[in-house]
């Protein structure tokens, strides 16, 4: 299982790097799906089976499909960055990369200096998650439901365009 963790981890990191550096949006999206799938494997290996399933279904499935739809609607599947050969010049990525590296270094320091470094991971059953979700976190669930509702209404409202004419035959007049 440790081997699986390492392999999935490497795949996740590599495909994520590929996803953020591709100039073609569709390619980036495909790498991202790979990244999420790899992350799902990691979660599975860590013992969070239910979370891994959700990762595949919601992230790699539903959310990515939304992205695909939008990319299709906007028709930017091809060369999104106009100056393709110039966009990954060091001037553009060296600053953010440095910043991310510093952040990573700080986070690593925080992780590796944990007082109980030898702690082990244990499996958390979906059943306990479900019980916790509907007892202790019931209010959170309600709030999440309201938020999803708000998201749906907001998306609908934003996507709604007023018709310019009442009937399609009258359009030209």
């Amino acid at each position: 299982m440790l081997i699986a963790f390492y392999i999935a981890g490497v795949i996740a990191v590599v495909s994520t790097i590929m996803a953020v550096t591709r100039s073609n949006a569709v390619h980036a999206l495909l790498y991202l799906i790979v990244s999420f799938l790899a992350a799902a494997v990691v979660l599975f290996v860590l013992g969070a089976h239910f979370a891994a399933a959700l990762e595949v279904i919601v992230y790699a499935g539903a959310i990515m499909v939304l992205f695909v739809f939008v990319i299709m609607m906007l028709n930017i599947g091809g060369e999104t960055e106009k100056a393709k050969e110039r966009w990954l010049v060091p001037k553009r990525w060296i600053g953010p990369a440095l910043m991310a590296a510093i952040l990573f270094a700080i986070l690593s320091y925080a992780i590796l200096n944990q007082p109980v470094a030898t702690a082990s991971l244990s499996i958390v059953e979906p059943k306990t998650v479900g019980i916790s979700l509907y007892t202790q976190y019931l209010l959170g669930v309600e709030i999440a439901a309201v938020m999803l509702m708000a998201g749906i209404i907001g998306a609908f409202h934003l996507g709604y365009t007023k018709r310019k004419s009442k009937h399609r035959f009258l359009k030209g007049e």
Partner: peptide, 15 residues
């Protein structure tokens, strides 16, 4: 980038 910088500064101070 500003947010990220703030994050770094905050974490540095906290840690």
């Amino acid at each position: 980038a500003g947010i990220a910088l703030g994050l770094i500064i905050t974490l540095t101070i906290a840690l």
